[in-house]
Design a protein around this nucleic acid. Structure first.
Length: 592
RNA sequence: GGUCCGGUAGCUCAGCUGGAUAGAGCAUCAGCCUUCUAAGCUGAGGGUCAUUGGUUCGAAUCCAAUCCGGAUCACCA
């Protein structure tokens, strides 16, 4: 059990025995003691004063005395400052945590609870390559899945590919018009970029045609509808839905190019999925549910045949769920897909990693599922994340300010190479090892940069900052890990036979206190669906370790006992760093 | 306009289920490599926690109002 809970329990028991009153964990707070005071953890007494009719000093002394006398294996001393009861925890507690966990690879992870959670993330369109925003999504989705797994859940990583619709037809039309049969192979272009180029070509041509029509005297609104290329695209969508063979063939071929490109990028960034859904297979789902909803009077059908749900009583609007022509809209397929996920996997929770521009949509989706009394409705959770912006403002594809994922990864790798060469610490590495290191460092920098901030907040991507390898960054933590490993290559900790006699030094203890907290951090990150807690925590560990490292020598420790103790601390620190970074999807090198 | 989210150091962010003198990184300045990797460490300066009011022993944190920024409110997805 975590120390904080042990203190809480001890305090509750003590208060019960001292005053015959029962309290619960909510009735008082336990904090880490501020560094300027003596002690490790602090019980805040204020909230207890009134129910017990005690002065801070009286209560603090009685409780402090009782705790140190009756829980002497846990508390060695106490002091009271104003209403704060500062407790010093026995060194023995920290070292026993160290000795039992220093080589426990499961340290911090919860026990299996046999509940199943699906995390849907990434969910790309097949008309253009991945960009910076997708990276935030992918890193978040992958990480939160790992964190939830570490909390004992079974995880299914899924992805819904938006592989059909008018946007896809745009690329297809443009390819027919301009490509002359060119392919990614014939032009030596990555497939998703190849198709994306035709999407751009579509928009250029479309704009040109609209301008021409407007110049010929047509109103802009009409011109946008009448442009021949747009009409052709709409016709193609109809042909697609009708299953016209040559359209289907082109669609399949162009999508296959995109998937080839996506796979390369996913592979590079380490995204993977247990189950991939395709919109072309799911877009018709949900109609049966609409029918059932009509029977239950959750939905109403208007005279023209369209089907609606009235959510005004819940503070939302009226929402259409089926068009008058009987076709399904976006939200209908989502209900259908939600159902399919549930039936296929019997999931207890379904997490959607989707940008905050869809907050309203997701709220509506869950509400509809609830009104339909679908069993999975309460398990829907929208992990909403903010947009990634540039220092110059929002990314806009029309203005060409979108940061392409592949370009960015290349750029980061270059910087990693440059910095590594400047320092010249790994000159004996093979070309293979160097390549691997550059990849580890560049991805570490980028992932950490995108994961270290609260997901729900929009964030600014500053290119210069993101490739920084100093301070609050991934490479800083990776470096700390490499430093520790360098020591451990020289000598391994001997292990569990070891008993600590001499008192822990300040920095030794600080590190141990932080390390002991690892399980709680994983739990919190999972409960709040927020990897940034973990990122913050690992950074703090690395920082504390570096202070410790500078201050105290491991190999040349004052005594053999201290050396063994510090080797154990090194082991546990390295394990926690590696384990925590793994949960963020970041690898740590042995040397750098 | 309705709903939702955000506003903390020059910049990027922690802290937000109320607790002690509001913390990091970057940037600026000053130190530290004969000793386990200096991608490091130590120190300094830098704040009206958007504003105003309320709740109370105590508010960056909770409540209300206001100001500013963003998202969203399609028979698009």
């Amino acid at each position: 059990m975590a120390i904080q809970q042990q203190i809480q329990q001890a305090a509750i028991e003590s208060l019960e025995k001292l005053y015959s009153k029962s309290f619960s964990a909510k009735d008082f707070q336990i904090n880490k003691t501020k560094p300027e005071f003596e002690g490790d953890y602090t019980i805040v007494l204020f909230s207890l004063l009134k129910p017990l009719s005690k002065s801070p000093d009286a209560l603090g002394n009685e409780l402090g005395k009782f705790l140190t006398e009756n829980y002497s294996q846990l508390f060695t001393s106490y002091n009271i400052i104003k209403g704060f009861l500062n407790l010093t925890i026995a060194d023995n507690y920290w070292t026993s945590v160290l000795i039992t966990n220093y080589n426990n690879s499961c340290f911090g992870k919860g026990e299996a609870n046999h509940k199943k959670v699906m995390v849907e993330y990434s969910s790309p369109n097949t008309n253009k390559p991945l960009h910076l925003g997708h990276l935030r999504n992918n890193f978040l989705g992958w990480s939160i899945a790992e964190i939830i797994k570490a909390n004992g859940y079974d995880i299914v990583k899924s992805c819904i590919v938006n592989d059909r619709g008018i946007h896809i037809c745009k690329s297809m039309i443009a390819w027919q018009m301009f490509a002359n049969g060119a392919t990614p192979k014939s032009t030596n272009t990555k497939g998703d970029h190849f198709v994306g180029d035709y999407y751009v070509k579509f928009n250029n041509e479309y704009k040109k045609q609209v301008d021409e029509l407007v110049a010929g005297g047509m109103k802009k609104d009409d011109a946008e509808k009448e442009a021949p290329i747009m009409k052709a695209t709409q016709q193609m969508l109809l042909d697609w839905e009708a299953g016209k063979p040559e359209v289907m063939q082109l669609w399949k071929e162009m999508n296959s190019w995109v998937y080839e490109g996506f796979d390369e990028t996913y592979n590079r960034i380490g995204s993977n999925f247990d189950k991939i859904y395709y919109e072309s297979n799911t877009y018709l789902l949900g109609k049966k549910t609409v029918q059932e909803g009509l029977e239950k009077n959750v939905f109403v059908q208007k005279e023209d045949g369209s089907v609606w749900i009235d959510l005004t009583a819940d503070g939302l609007d009226e929402k259409i769920v089926q068009r008058k022509d009987g076709t399904s809209v976006y939200i209908t397929q989502d209900i259908g897909l939600a159902q399919q996920k549930y039936e296929e996997y019997k999931i207890d929770q379904s997490i959607y990693v989707i940008g905050d521009e869809q907050n309203y949509h997701m709220k509506v989706l869950q509400l509809i599922c609830k009104k339909l009394e679908l069993p999975y409705a309460d398990g829907i959770y929208h992990l909403s994340y903010g947009m990634v912006e540039l220092p110059t403002g929002k990314m806009k594809s029309r203005e060409g300010t979108v940061v392409d994922a592949d370009d960015l990864l290349d750029e980061m790798e270059n910087v990693a190479r440059q910095k590594t060469e400047e320092l010249g610490k790994v000159k004996d590495f093979t070309a293979e090892e160097l390549k691997e290191l550059y990849k580890t460092l560049s991805l570490g920098a980028l992932k950490f940069y995108l994961l270290r901030v609260d997901p729900k907040k929009k964030m600014v991507f500053n290119p210069e900052e993101s490739i920084d390898f100093h301070g609050y960054t991934g490479p800083f933590i990776q470096y700390t890990h490499a430093r520790i490993k360098s020591i451990l290559r020289k000598e391994k900790a001997q292990g569990s036979e070891f008993a600590v006699q001499s008192a822990l030094l300040q920095l030794e203890k600080e590190l141990l206190i932080e390390l002991e907290n690892y399980p709680s951090v994983i739990e919190q990150a999972g409960n709040e669906h927020d990897p940034s807690h973990l990122a913050n925590y690992i950074y703090s560990i690395a920082k504390t370790f570096n202070s410790f490292y500078t201050e105290h020598s491991v190999m040349n420790a004052e005594t053999e006992e201290k050396k063994q103790l510090r080797l154990l601390i090194c082991e546990l620190t390295a394990n926690v760093i590696a384990s925590g970074m793994q949960l963020l999807g970041i690898a740590v090198p042995e040397r750098m």
